[in-house]
Design a protein around this nucleic acid. Sequence first.
DNA 1: CTGAAAGCGCTTACAG
DNA 2: CTGAAAGCGCTTACAG
Lengths: 354, 354
Amino acid sequence: MREARSKTKPVLATVAALAGVSAPTVSKVINGRDDVAESTRARVQAALAELGYESPMQRRARSTGPAMVDLVIDGSATQYSMEILTGILDYAATEDVDVVVGSVTPAKLHRANHEEWAQRMVESGRKGLILVTSEMTTQQLDSFANRNIPVVVIDPLNPPRHGYTSVGATNWAGGKAATEHLISLGHQRIAFLGGPRAAECSVARLHGYLAGLMGHGISSRPEYVLVGEFSKAFGLAGARELLDLAEPPTAIFAGCDATALGVLEEVRHRGLRVPDDLSLVGFDGTPLTEQTLPRLTSVAQPLQEMGRAALRAVLRLAQGEMLDSSHMELATELVIRDSTAPPRTNHVPAGSDL
Amino acid sequence: MREARSKTKPVLATVAALAGVSAPTVSKVINGRDDVAESTRARVQAALAELGYESPMQRRARSTGPAMVDLVIDGSATQYSMEILTGILDYAATEDVDVVVGSVTPAKLHRANHEEWAQRMVESGRKGLILVTSEMTTQQLDSFANRNIPVVVIDPLNPPRHGYTSVGATNWAGGKAATEHLISLGHQRIAFLGGPRAAECSVARLHGYLAGLMGHGISSRPEYVLVGEFSKAFGLAGARELLDLAEPPTAIFAGCDATALGVLEEVRHRGLRVPDDLSLVGFDGTPLTEQTLPRLTSVAQPLQEMGRAALRAVLRLAQGEMLDSSHMELATELVIRDSTAPPRTNHVPAGSDL
DNA sequence: CTGAAAGCGCTTACAG
DNA sequence: CTGAAAGCGCTTACAG
């Protein structure tokens, strides 16, 4: 549809001929002048699209220097985003691609005028857009789709949807592995401290956790499942709530490493010890896991790989290639460190046959 | 010197007139053709510079969309660089500036063709360049200076020099504060584990340490001063060496938090405890300091502020403003946490009157 | 609203 | 190596 009619690059005169107008009129349309009849404007715009006309500026921008890709990271600069960024930058360096990084809070992202944003990207010759843990409405995504700007989301908050490509990790499998590890150590009272209810990845981890329990005939207890946010603060608050229960859990599976850190602090604060009094598993596998005491057992996401994969996908899409799938999940891996151990035997309910 | 002669924007013909050549000749010089005599080329280049000629592309690039600034971060993505990046991105967002991030290893940076790089920056309309803990030779810096591209270095390895602006922290004062804190706790045998001998900031910290000792009449011992690199590995190795001494130190001042982390691990490995058996002070004040056990007393650098200050400086320079100073040092601050305490009394040599 | 004509700024092809 | 001449692609000023 949008293919050029002939091989020779279309110039203003070509467009004019196709639209049946003069060159000056095309020039006016391109430059947004208002002294053009609506019907003429429409005809010219159709011709511009059909021929795939690019101004000399655009052509130059496209051919000069390395390709540029935009990257938007959720405002909070965590070790998680740093790992992803590292992966993207590494791959960008080998491909000679420039990465334009913006730090945008979710609120700001939502307020942004996506039409203008996409238009500016086209004008600056940007090849595509990578979003880290952000979301856009379908309409917003359309602003980019209409201009043929590929959008790839890493760890999307929304479930996969048409119009963009996403890269994630096997969150469900990771949640299940974490839970089964705890069960295999003898735990029965296992709690889950998840991220935002709206975050697809957190929901998947929760369901992995539930599947792990169910697969071993352990029924889930509502009071053992708290969802809130991916933060240390939530770990502190969540641990407080869980440990105050009449029958507190003997193990906690935290939805991310930062949350686990909060749990660790609250446990320590109470004079309890990990893993003696409580086993703890995190999620993400950030460098943090090696820095805590005890070192944190965690489900590692291949964050750098995910960054690389996202950039690779954007560059392919920008070249008009088709991707095998619009959503890819890289494998998580449970890394057992020092924060998990069998529960104290006196905590095992009488009658348990584990 | 480099101001335009007249107010009207210089076009190719203006340059030709000033250089005493024809327009086609100027065109050739601009486009890097080689069929131009060296002397002619030089004359044209002088005229281009004198008039501040910009091609239509450049002019457009300058007026379209947000300003772009290049950022090069030493390959290793540490919490240190993440903090600086956050500061830069925050400020960039408020100023509507795009930051083009590259991750370049020092070796790669050294090999790069700076002339080409600078030329490409001009052509892409980049406003300036921020380097994080990197260095360039004077000649390399000239490639940018000649094209009026401001370069600002954060925490430069080289001492301040002409041709670029640098942003650092009060390393000497920080080193002195750390040392005096340990002395005030009663320590006399204080060791220093510094960064690369070539790194200006590390040298300043070392001299702050020496000044702290000297000011309190404590003579420095060569075996207590080890310099190597800013890494955890060096902390491990350095601690091993120091603790194996016949008379080991009672306190270690580590040149950065990562090194302190290594020390902590080695101390723990030997079954010793911080701060009971050994006091430990880090440098940088990264989030790491809150994540260790015990939490790490550290000299905090205002890393985010440094990032902001660097971007502010680049943008000002790009607008032709003069800076008050080509080197600015932001204040460090000793943050006392849990890794420092008075030395065990039996370690104080007999006869000490502390 | 539209477009013939003139113009702008840069580049190309080529004669010397 | 240099530049007069021709050309390119877009824009402007203005007559209708």
